[in-house]
């Protein structure tokens, strides 16, 4: 079975123009693919043996860009971005320049040897923490992320709560990210959030919001789909659930994604698929041009069904 209707066709049916950026508010920076974990759903194929890492020169360029443009938010991801030796410098300088900083944190990295300083750092520099916590049942989460991950995540969230993260009225944000534990679509973000809140209350943990994400058929998750003969059915499921209302809110319209090597992409997924921003738009950090990028044409493919299925999916959770 192959999917009969490609994303281009659906897009042409839904709008009269190609998908275009609509401003540029967020610079999402991938510091590298190294991670202390090897989650089964990872679209980055991240793990302890990955060597890709952003250079100091590129970190300097990122700091320059977020200090001098209309970009209001720096969204830092990886791998586990905290493992980058210059992670704290990047956060500190971006925040000092007045930028809102989001860190996509896997929680467990804060318990890694040599990473103890991060709690104190996060106490002094209140970033928005967006933490991967794909399910509230231990067996399901550990199956996706490795044995012991649930217990470690609970320990870290308790410490973050003690520092005010996720506590109403504190101004310190701890958002959690749900993604399905297999080849199926996520439930409604709203109902899941209520369920997660209820379940985590039993551990005396609070959090700000739950973001519900679709698993992208890329990286290690794609390998799983192919290995288990679920790929075609899953991609068809995404395509069948295409919702044109989500097109206005897909994240590529507001962000530019920077790879560890300084190349520019429309999103982290295009980065993993090696589909960079194409000329005449700037393709590298050193050529960064805010106005051009804020009005660029977006490179789409069938993986974009992952962002536009059902309630939609972006780095900020459901769209619709």
């Amino acid at each position: 079975m192959s999917i009969s209707t490609a994303f281009h066709d659906k897009l042409n049916g839904a709008c009269t123009v190609p998908l275009q950026a609509h401003g540029l508010e967020v610079l999402q920076v991938n510091l590298g693919y190294r991670c202390n974990m090897e989650c089964r759903h990872c679209h980055v194929n991240a793990g302890p043996d990955r060597k890709e890492i952003m250079s100091s020169e590129n970190i300097d360029r990122v700091i320059d860009i977020v200090s001098g443009n209309g970009i209001s938010t720096l969204d830092i991801t990886g791998g586990a971005p905290e493992l980058h030796p210059e992670f704290t410098r990047l956060v500190r300088e971006a925040m000092t320049a007045g930028c809102h900083v989001i860190v996509r944190c896997n929680l467990t990295v804060l318990l890694e040897p040599g990473m103890e300083h991060l709690f104190e750092f996060y106490a002094d520099f209140p970033v928005e923490i967006v933490a991967s916590f794909p399910y509230y049942r231990e067996a399901d989460l550990d199956r996706m992320r490795g044995a012991g991950s649930f217990a470690k995540s609970i320990r870290v969230m308790k410490r973050l709560n003690q520092m005010g993260y996720g506590v109403p009225g504190s101004g310190r944000v701890l958002n959690l990210v749900y993604n399905p534990g297999g080849a199926f679509l996520p439930a409604s973000q709203c109902s899941l959030e209520a369920e997660f809140k209820n379940a985590l209350e039993k551990h005396d943990i609070v959090f700000s919001r739950l973001l519900s994400l679709v698993n992208m058929p890329i990286g290690r998750f794609r390998d799983f789909l192919v290995r288990t003969n679920n790929y075609d059915a899953y991609v068809k499921r995404l395509a069948d659930a295409f919702n044109p209302d989500t097109l206005a809110g897909v994240m590529c319209r507001q962000i530019v994604s920077v790879a560890w090597d300084g190349r520019l992409f429309d999103c982290d997924f295009n980065q993993m698929l090696d589909m960079p921003i194409e000329p005449p738009y700037p393709g590298r950090l050193e050529d960064f041009d805010y106005d051009m990028l804020a009005n660029r044409r977006i490179i789409v493919g069938n993986h974009c069904f992952g962002c536009t299925a059902g309630q939609g999916s972006s780095c900020g959770g459901a769209i619709d």
Partner: peptide, 12 residues
């Protein structure tokens, strides 16, 4: 079973 998983439920 798929519908239950897509409603956020687990095997439990």
């Amino acid at each position: 079973t798929k519908a239950c998983l897509e409603e956020g439920m687990s095997m439990e």
